[in-house]
Design a protein around this nucleic acid. Structure first.
Lengths: 134, 134
DNA sequence: CATAAACTATACCAAAATGGTGAACTAATA
DNA sequence: TATTAGTTCACCATTTTGGTATAGTTTATG
C-alpha cells in the first residue's frame, strides 16, 4: 500500500521543474543531482511524464526538460498515474471478472473499497504543484 | 498502490466469520471453500489475524476459527494492518532518515503525502464489519 | 557538415515481494 | 491413542521493483 520509488522521483522532478522560471529548459543531470535521483533511472521515467503531457523535452545541445503545463494544472494524481498507471485498490476494482462475488451490489466489501479508492484519488488530485511549490 | 491478495482474502474470511452466529467456530475448510480462497494460503494468513486479536482459533477435533471481537469493533484497517502491516504511502513517511529532504517543514510533497496517508487510514478505519455484513 | 551534447529506446540484471504449496509438528477431542 | 485440525517453517515460481548498460537519434554549433 504505497507509491513506488519511480513515482517519488517523478514528484521530485516535477517539483523541481515547477520551481524554475516558466519555460526554462533544465537538463536531466541538473534534476538528478539536485533531487538526489539516480541519473539513468530518472532518464527512464521522464518519457512517462512526457506521454502524459506533463513535461516536454528538448534533445541535443542545450536540451533538457520543462513543464508542459502550469504547475497549478499538474496534480500529484497526474504524476502518479503517469508513472504507475491508474489507482486500483484491489483487482476486484480493476476487472469485474476477477471479483469472485461478481461486483456490486452483492459484495459490500467491494463497495467499501470502491469508495475508499475514490477518496484516495480525490486526495491525490487535490494537490497541485502550485500548492507544493509555496 | 493496492491491497495485496492476502489482505483481500483476510477481508473475506472476517466477513464470513462475521456472518456466523456469535462465537460459532468454523473450520478453515468451510471458510476457504465458501470464499473461494486457497485452503493452504488461508491457513497461512489466519495467524496474522489471531496475533492482531481479531480472530481466535481452536485446535483439534471440532476446531476452527471465530471472531475474537464483535464485528462492529473490527474495521477494514484492522484487518489490513494485521496482514500487511501499517500503511506507509512512501518510504519518506516510514523512516525520516530515508527522506532526502529531511522531513517537514522542508518538503511540501512530504507534507501532502502525510496528509493523504492519514485520509486513507481514516477511510479504511471508517468501515466496520458490522457495516459490511448488512 | 562534423562533432559533441543530450534525450530515447530497449535490453538486461539482481533483489525483493507476491502468491502459493508441502511437510513436520502440536494441541485437543473422542 | 488415534484422528482431526490449526501452527510453523521451509520452499518455490513468477512478477515487480529499482537500477544499469548499450546503442541510437536529434539538435545546436563551430
Amino acid at each position: 500500500m504505497n507509491i513506488n520509488q519511480a513515482t517519488d522521483y517523478g514528484f521530485r522532478a516535477v517539483l523541481f521543474l515547477a520551481a524554475q522560471p516558466a519555460g526554462e529548459v533544465v537538463e536531466a543531470q541538473a534534476i538528478a543531482s539536485s533531487q538526489v535521483v539516480p541519473m539513468r533511472f530518472l532518464l527512464k521515467i521522464m518519457p512517462s511524464l512526457i506521454k502524459a503531457g506533463i513535461v516536454r523535452s528538448q534533445r541535443g545541445v542545450g536540451g533538457g526538460y520543462a513543464l508542459a503545463r502550469e504547475p497549478k494544472d499538474i496534480t500529484l494524481l497526474d504524476v502518479l498515474e503517469a508513472i504507475e498507471g491508474p489507482i486500483y485498490l484491489n483487482r476486484c476494482l480493476m476487472d469485474e471478472d476477477l471479483c469472485s462475488k461478481q461486483g456490486p451490489p452483492t459484495c459490500l466489501v467491494h463497495q467499501a473499497l470502491a469508495n475508499i479508492q475514490q477518496q484516495l484519488i480525490d486526495a491525490f488530485a487535490s494537490y497541485s504543484f502550485a500548492d507544493l511549490s509555496g
